[in-house]
Nucleic acid binder design. Structure first.
Lengths: 215, 215
DNA sequence: AATTAAATTTAGACAAAGCTAAAAATTATA
DNA sequence: TATAATTTTTAGCTTTGTCTAAATTTAATT
């Protein structure tokens, strides 16, 4: 499997986890910052290899084989992210691009040994679940902070947006995985939130609240 | 720089370290298991980028820029090999192919952090030197066991051949880096050696002795 | 020195993965 | 429902890195 094929599978996998329905050519093109015509070419190729179910003009979905392959790439990506943060002391906003490269290294033995070396983590540094060697995922039920009501208290367990900008903002506000967050006030005018993080009180926009997972 | 370009640079670097003279197209082709015509194409490209000095029909050598680039690839390869052996518990005969992939990961920060994580090793699991971040190499003077004479004693500090077969043979004979080796007898007929490794006495062929570095 | 052999390069072709522009199918709208 | 707008696909071109076969240059040998 080529790097490019792997990237397409991963993208389709991620898009599927949001929408459930078949994925459109344009959606893939947009996510991958490529052209629709390139996507069409690749879908034919992946279909040929039984990695996706593809019908012209109708969109695409992963076959079982494709889904497992995608999960293995996600597994690698997230395990490498753990390695970078926990062992090499990278911060959580720096690891994505490097993991994007490392996820394509081909060696099952390597990834399973890495898994053991890291103590078989179930989540990556952004709170996303890590599939095991069989592709099984432990789902943690979690809500967006934006769906919380006044006086509710929860623990930050993940981020939806993993962009460097967002993660650096969180660092600045001292919001990390494991932080306790309490809703003090919900401003009805702009849907912003007054929250307590640890001992500090801060105001965050609705956009921020819509990208924080709480349990 | 593409994977392919990096592989050519690395190959030229390795060939240079043996012969010193300009490298021939065929030598590169043979080492890389590709065709001479493909090599010619790539040499033009590398020359265009000032990574090699290339004159038609005359052979090729690395420029300073090319040599530094090659050293950085070798640095990455050998640091990753250390990681695999020391942290993930791979054996020394398993790491080459995986490091061959990992050496192409692009991130200076990553490789320098990995270097620190490993305690800034100066040699890889086969006894080969690891260039530092500036490309400097600590040269250790070492001899082939085959050049030793009767009654000489030394420590095994490296292997010339790093093929899995050879390394497994050494494991079987309990010869490892750091093993003390004493020449008991040199058989003039076939140039084989009777040696003492630790407490055991064994006989090894000249081919084996020609691939073991001793200090 | 002439000829043969070997090494090297050139020319032209191919597969992968991308692109643009045009055609076709689907969806939305008047 | 007919037309317009959007989406998707097709056709053809480009680049990278490879190949084969032919041409050229260098080296070896008579």
């Amino acid at each position: 499997m080529t790097f490019s094929e792997e990237n397409y599978l991963k993208t389709i996998y991620h898009l599927t986890s949001v929408s459930d329905a078949d994925i459109s050519t344009n959606a893939i093109a947009e996510k991958m910052e490529t052209k629709a015509s390139s996507v069409t070419d690749m879908l034919k190729k992946l279909s040929e290899k039984d990695l996706v179910n593809y019908i012209k003009y109708q969109g695409v979905s992963l076959t079982d084989k494709g889904k497992l392959a995608a999960k293995m790439i996600v597994r690698k990506h997230r395990l490498w992210e753990c390695f970078l943060v926990e062992k090499l002391d990278f911060s959580w906003d720096e690891v994505h691009d490097i993991a994007e490269q490392l996820e394509h290294i081909k060696s099952e033995k390597l990834i399973n040994k890495l898994d053991d070396f890291l103590g078989n983590p179930t989540e990556d540094p952004h709170g996303d679940p890590i599939p095991d060697a069989q592709g099984r995922i432990i789902k943690v039920e979690k809500q967006l902070l934006s769906e919380f009501e006044k006086n509710q208290i929860g623990i930050c367990v993940g981020v939806k947006d993993t962009s460097s900008d967002f993660l650096k903002y969180l660092d600045k506000q001292e919001i990390a995985l494991g932080s306790q967050i309490e809703i003090i006030e919900k401003e009805s005018f702009d849907s912003s939130f007054r929250i307590r993080v640890g001992t500090k009180e801060i105001t965050i926009s609705n956009k921020i609240a819509s990208n924080l997972y709480i349990k």
